[in-house]
């Protein structure tokens, strides 16, 4: 999928360059500016998450997320998902491993849902673009919604 994105963006870039050299230059300048403006936060977040994941292992996490952990387990899963930020190719195998090592569907659904929708560590970046109010509303609603997702998934799959 990433390759497709490279293909699209490179073709778009070539097309843009043929139409106007100046505009293309400006576009690349803007691309770099937007990237560089969030780079300090992204790098800090990545390091922080690295340390967190080095301390917290999947075995430790699944200890608290068993089928019988109930809503406490769901809450713990939702909070962990809201805080950590990991790429999908790590997250889904991790979720599958957690399920295998005894975590419940309800808990894993909460984890996957907040992992995707709630970004606790990226709140500073979100505020930069949406302001405080939208950021807080969106994250709180997404967190609550994840609990609903967990409840429904628990009933259907559990």
């Amino acid at each position: 999928m990433t390759q497709i994105f490279y293909l699209i963006s490179i073709s778009a870039l070539v097309f843009s360059f043929l139409k106007s050299k100046e505009k293309t230059k400006l576009a690349l300048k803007k691309a770099w500016k937007s990237f560089e403006s969030i780079l300090p936060q992204i790098l800090s977040i990545i390091l922080l998450i690295g340390m967190l994941l080095a301390i917290l292992t999947p075995e430790q996490i699944s200890m608290y997320l068993g089928n019988d952990s109930g809503w406490i387990g769901v809450l713990i899963a939702a909070i962990i998902g809201a805080i950590i930020l990991i790429p999908a190719f790590v997250a889904f195998p991790l979720a599958a491993a957690l399920l295998d090592s005894g975590a419940g569907y309800m808990q894993i659904a909460a984890f996957v849902s907040t992992l995707m929708m709630v970004g606790f560590v990226t709140i500073p970046i979100e505020i930069k673009y949406f302001g405080k109010k939208v950021t807080i509303i969106r994250n709180v609603l997404a967190f609550l919604f994840s609990l609903i997702v967990a409840a429904i998934m628990g009933v259907v799959l559990g």
């Binding site: 990433t2 994105f5 490279y6 699209i8 963006s9 490179i10 778009a12 870039l13 843009s16 505009k23 293309t24 400006l26 576009a27 690349l28 300048k29 803007k30 691309a31 770099w32 937007s34 990237f35 992204i42 790098l43 990545i46 390091l47 998450i49 690295g50 340390m51 990991i86 790429p87 190719f89």
Partner: peptide
Amino acid sequence: SWKNILEMLSVIPPIFVLLGLLDV
């Protein structure tokens, strides 16, 4: 962290290039 940084660097460039072109 290193793995995550590499992932970021491989996924992000085309997004921002498209963002720049969209803007212009």
